[in-house]
Every structure is written in structure tokens, then in C-alpha cells.
């Protein structure tokens, strides 16, 4: 039972990192990146390939994941410069599917649908419970550091410009702001964080395959960020922990609700997640942790 709980905490930290990657891109800049799981996969594969094929240390794998995520994020931004709102969402959704399909078919590189096994971890797997504890602590620390970084960036003049661009990018442009540069920077940072989450995930569970990177993960993470508050790192983080806690707790619905089959329990879980989101949006429209404006300085 202890291993199970620690495992859930580790996975929640990975989800929290993913949710945090949405803060600058979606919450602060207003870009809907439905290709989140694609960047998650890019990071997982970049790290796995470097640490297995090239036998590089795990830390180097994590750095490679960050770089790969940022570079692919830049490519996606530059190819979607003219797109906003729904159109950007559709294209990025397509991007994630392309990543999954390429991973499934480029067998020489990714081992196709068989996936990559035996990915080295940051810690010795033979440690039993301690292995999980160490990883959960490490992932939580990474999550905490990323959260602090995102919060500082959000509060900086750079973050203020992102929010201005989210409000109206034409006005931001005529106010002298390099809109494309700011959007690209935010997207690159967000993509790098999502890729880092992928690398941590792969190194923890030691195996990755294209089927692990389904669009449902993106939807779950968006739900988490929406419920917690998509423009603050703390909101996205708490949202992710609540989502994972609820997804795990609701596995036991079958024992509480009489007369439902396992398939019906699975459907009930999805329904309750949706219902919880509706309730949060009804009673806390900006999420549990709403965006805060900067305190205005004295006029004199």
C-alpha cells in the first residue's frame, strides 16, 4: 500500500509538471496548446534514446529532453505564427498525433509500437520502496523549482507582456512589443517543461511506447489546470494533484456504488471528473487559484 501511495505521488508530480507547462503558454499568453502530450512524448523519447542507445547518464537525458522540447516548441511556434485560438488548438492537436504516429512507425529509431524498455532511472531500482520514495521526492523538487521559476517569470515585466499579448496582441504590437518573440519564448519554455516531465516519467517507469501518449493525457492536464487556475503555477500544481487523487480514488467507486460493472465504473470516473470541473467553474470561474494583478505602486 505504501508503494502504491508513493507511486501515485510520483505520478502526480509528473502531471503537476505537465500542468505547470500550460501556465506560461495558455494561462499567461492565451495560446491553447492541445499538443501537450506530443511534447511529453518528445521529452520521453529524447531522454530514453540518449540514455539507452548512447548510454549517456540520466541527467544528460533530462537536459536533452529540455533542449528537444524547446527546439520542437520553437518549430511549432514558427509554423503556427498566424494561427490563434481554435486554429492553433487544432494544429497542435494534430502535431501530437503526428509525434505518436511517427513514434509508432519509425521503428529504426523508436522501436515502433514495441516501445523502448530498460530506460535507466535516476536511482537504483533494487531499492524497493526507497526507489519510489527517492523518485517521488526528486520529481516533487523539480516540480517545486519549475513552479518557482514560472511564478517569478509571471510576475516579471516579461510575464506582464505575455498577459498583454493574451488580452490583445495588436495593441501589444503597436505598444512596441515584439509579439512573435514573446510568444515563441513562452512556448519554448512550456514545451521544455512538458518534455522534462516526459523524460522523468520514462526514466521512472523504465518503459515507453507510443500508446502511452494518448490525447486523453492532454485533456486531463487541461482539466487540472482549469480547475486549479491556469495562470498560476500553484493553481496548476494543486489542480494536477487533485485530479490524480480523484482518478485514483474513483477506482474504488465499484465498491461503493452497488450493481455497477467494471466498465460502468470506468465511465463513472470520467463523468465525475467532468462534473467536478463544472462545479469548480460554476463556483470558482477562474479556478481555485485565480490570477492576481500586480500591486499598483504609489502614484507619486
Amino acid at each position: 500500500m505504501a508503494t502504491y501511495i508513493v507511486f501515485i505521488l510520483a505520478i502526480a508530480a509528473v502531471y503537476a509538471l505537465l500542468a505547470q507547462s500550460l501556465v506560461l503558454v495558455w494561462g499567461q499568453s492565451g495560446m491553447v496548446n492541445l499538443g501537450l502530450v506530443g511534447f511529453f512524448a518528445i521529452g520521453a523519447y529524447a531522454s530514453a534514446l540518449v540514455t539507452t542507445d548512447l548510454a549517456a547518464p540520466v541527467v544528460i537525458g533530462l537536459v536533452c529532453a529540455l533542449v528537444a522540447g524547446a527546439l520542437v516548441g520553437l518549430a511549432v511556434t514558427l509554423s503556427t505564427l498566424r494561427l490563434r485560438d481554435d486554429y492553433l488548438a487544432i494544429v497542435t492537436l494534430g502535431f501530437a498525433e503526428v509525434v505518436r504516429i511517427v513514434a509508432s512507425n519509425e521503428i529504426w529509431l523508436t522501436n515502433g509500437t514495441d516501445g523502448i524498455a530498460g530506460i535507466p532511472s535516476l536511482f537504483d531500482r533494487s531499492g524497493g520502496l526507497w526507489f519510489h520514495v527517492k523518485f517521488a521526492v526528486a520529481a516533487t523538487l523539480v516540480c517545486l523549482l519549475a513552479g518557482i521559476l514560472i511564478s517569478r517569470l509571471s510576475r516579471s515585466p516579461w510575464g506582464r507582456v505575455l498577459r498583454a499579448i493574451r488580452d490583445d496582441q495588436v495593441v501589444a504590437a503597436v505598444a512596441g512589443k515584439r509579439v512573435v518573440r514573446y510568444k515563441a519564448e513562452a512556448f519554448m519554455i512550456g514545451s521544455a517543461i512538458a518534455a522534462l516531465a516526459g523524460a522523468l516519467y520514462g526514466s521512472y517507469i523504465s518503459y515507453i511506447a507510443p500508446d502511452l501518449f494518448q490525447p486523453l493525457i492532454t485533456i486531463y492536464v487541461f482539466l487540472a489546470a482549469t480547475a486549479g487556475g491556469n495562470s498560476r503555477a500553484i493553481g496548476a500544481t494543486i489542480g494536477a494533484y487533485l485530479l490524480v487523487a480523484w482518478l485514483e480514488a474513483s477506482r474504488f467507486l465499484g465498491e461503493i456504488v452497488p450493481g455497477v460493472s467494471a466498465v460502468q465504473v470506468a465511465a463513472l470516473r470520467e463523468i465525475t471528473v467532468g462534473l467536478a470541473l463544472v462545479l469548480v467553474l460554476r463556483f470558482a470561474p477562474g479556478g481555485l487559484f485565480r490570477e492576481k494583478n500586480e500591486k499598483a505602486p504609489h502614484a507619486n
Partner: peptide, 18 residues
């Protein structure tokens, strides 16, 4: 649509100062 509605007046002015 010539101001940033979600930002405060002070933040709007800071955006103009580049």
C-alpha cells in the same frame, strides 16, 4: 480594444514604457 482589460491601469502603463 486599445487597452489591456485584464491588467490594472498601472500594468497597462508599464506595458507602454519600453
Amino acid at each position: 480594444r486599445n487597452v489591456f482589460g485584464a491588467l490594472t491601469i498601472a500594468e497597462n502603463l508599464d506595458i507602454g514604457a519600453y
